[in-house]
Amino acid sequence: MRRLSESRLFNFIINNSTGILFVVILAFFALTAQNFFSLDNALSIIKNASFIGVLAVGMTFVLLTAGIDLSVGSNMYLSAVVAGLLMRQFDIPVWMGLLTALSIGGLYGLFNGFCVVVLRIVPFMVTLATLVMGRGIGTFLTQSEQVDLPERVNEFGQLRLLGIPMPVIVFLIVLLIAIYILRYTPLGRQMYAVGNDPDAAKKAGVNTDRVIWSVYVISGIAAGLVGFVLASQVMRVDRSFGESYELDAIAAAVIGGTSLFGGVGSALGAVFGAILLQMVEAGLVFRSVNLYLQPMVKALVIFIAVFFDGIRTANIAQQRRRYIRNDLDDTDAPVSSASLPEPKPVSES
């Protein structure tokens, strides 16, 4: 059964394309760049990947329902601006600043969800509009000036637990929460259902409006969180803060195996995607590749990953094709009359 084993190998590669790409790239840099393969460097890569990583995990929720959230970069900015201004003007404690950023992010997502669910506007257009809106509000509040954060935020930013930097810990917590929601709650499984077939989900009694609304809120809260954590690292929020982060977040999610057509994807995949992107960037720096060539290499990696997604989707569509007759070499295909001969049993190999 040569054909069968070939198609199994094909399926294995297609379904694990990110993992394979990850290992190949890691091996390449480990072998060709000095000092790349070290614990310190690994931790540094993961820390730098955590910002896009958390955004990508939030984005995964939205993409699962076949939506998109282009506003996360602006959301980060606005959340950090509001939290920063409050901390500076009113001297509120850091934890309240964090809570503020999360709330602003959540409200931002609530508004996105409102436009998608109640006003029935396409997610792409809604979040494109709120992308412009968020940054607009932020620059209005700051008069376009940069917000410097008080020193106590730096203490928070430099916190370590067992030697692990705070952003990495946040990254880990977000990942665990996301896995819990997506895998172990009814809401999470319903997100997959809505992304796969919204009409069937409605017919099966799923409250699709609530499900869709919730993914935008989750993505918004993730953006608010990233805004605050990143601000605590750089200690200032200027007007280009978080700009075009949404694109890297989408890229990371898709590289992690999330389909833009909905229904397919995982939080762990998004984390892998973000780390992969960061690893490529770090590796190119380690190998002292021309600065101007680096974006092209990164683009190539994204391209390869998305290409595999395309093949995977086409593969699924192929499997969904209607079968009419039971050809002899097609043992699992149906017959519609009991008078036809019994099909041969499927041979295992």
Partner: peptide
């Protein structure tokens, strides 16, 4: 009317999963 990306069990129970508590958290 099946969700092809989910398991049989999830398809059957999509609008009413059995859940249980572990501490304060509720799991499927």
């Amino acid at each position: 009317n099946l969700f092809t990306n989910l398991t049989i069990a999830e398809n059957i129970f999509i609008d009413g999963f059995p859940t249980r508590r572990i501490g304060p958290i509720r799991f499927i």
